[in-house]
Design a protein around this nucleic acid. Structure first.
Lengths: 207, 207
DNA sequence: TATTGCCTGTGAAATAATTCACAAAAATAT
DNA sequence: ATATTTTTGTGAATTATTTCACAGGCAATA
């Protein structure tokens, strides 16, 4: 079981490796990786050790191979089905992001409680009313959800998603969603909340 | 110097206290706070201890007083000036969020490299071309920035913001921004990246 | 005003994560 | 072929964070 901080860094590393590969780099040392990610080289090596391999070399890591390794460990190759709940400004903006359309995540459903809105949005993604969240998530076996609804309905939406069998949630609503089930993962992306954390860090750092 | 995990939790606690206060609650125990935030009661108490007070009671914390305490420690009362760089779909959606307009953060500038776009957006917020980021940030003494530009220009934007004297950055671009200055704080809010972390956590948890 | 039951504050213990240090292996240079 | 440099992998040490345990204070009750 890989500790969470390591998972986080390995995901960042994975993207970096993709970028490097696109720029034609083939090998790179832990020191250089560390520099690019803003962490120590030791840390990079420890994280890679969690993947459970042992193939030492004196010319750094083979980028293709390392990518493959991470990808296998976390199954990044298989496409994941995702949905968005809340098709306001933020929700639709996220829905149309390029980096979400082309990649390993496939947004296959959008939900909103406002039926009129569903009719006015033109999108290639199937849209459904909010009351059908549980049913659609279950039927289409959707694993991941992005919540972009007002704070007051976020918990209700989360409960419906969980009933449908969702595995992970990205929550943009400015509220802490409660989960009893330890098997479901949530990441809060509360914008004003994060600004507040930044502001607190700034104040905490001076003096 | 308060450790980062504690700052994070104290910020979440602060919002919870605001919500509780609005619903008319006046006192609450560490146990109940913990339950609502999904952390242990010990943890709550330890975090509060970092604020440097000592006023024990047998009926929990006074919500108003505790809010005040956190607020003073991190100066949540003074209004912070912020800006948004990148006025595409995501940037404008964030700019118009209600929870950002009314609260302690005041978005006073928007930037985009596309001059035509600046003219078509109707907003009460002053808009500027991207080449003036450094100058405007410095002149208006803007502390916080939200980056919502494509990955390829994010580093360049960050450098300009830092030159202008920015203190904290919320980065929505799917790329790790490098900072040499330890006095500047950054929080990455990369949507596809976070989906990938969730997906990795899910795979890591099974078996 | 005693007594009882909560609840906080906090030093100590336990756990988790990071950093270090160095042996061993591979590549490169001589 | 040998020496030198580079770079990884990993157990150990360090540091950070969380959890525990309980003393001591406050409030409520009778």
């Amino acid at each position: 079981m890989i500790p969470f901080p390591a998972i986080n860094r390995l995901c960042a590393l994975y993207r970096l490796l993709c970028d490097l590969q696109e720029s034609g780099v083939e090998r790179i040392s832990s020191a250089d990786l560390g520099k690019k990610l803003g962490v120590g080289a030791h840390n990079i090596r420890k994280d890679i050790a969690f993947l459970g391999v042992s193939s030492s070399s004196a010319s750094g890591y083979d980028i293709k191979g390392l990518k493959q390794l991470i990808s296998e460990k976390f199954e990044f190759n298989t496409e994941k089905k995702a949905c968005i709940v809340g098709l306001g400004r933020l929700g639709t903006a996220i829905m149309e992001r390029k980096d979400l359309c082309g990649g390993e995540f496939h947004i296959i459903a959008g939900f909103d409680s406002n039926i009129n809105r569903l009719e006015t949005i033109s999108s290639s993604i199937s849209l459904y009313p909010a009351y059908s969240i549980t049913e659609v998530v279950r039927r289409l076996r959707i694993e991941l959800a992005i919540i972009a609804v007002p704070a007051c309905v976020a918990q209700d939406v989360a409960d419906k998603l969980i009933d449908g069998g969702i595995k992970g949630i990205l929550n943009f609503a400015p509220v802490i969603v409660k989960l009893d089930n330890k098997e479901i993962f949530i990441k809060n992306m509360d914008i004003s909340g994060e600004l507040r954390v930044l502001s607190a860090q700034i104040k905490n750092s001076i003096r």
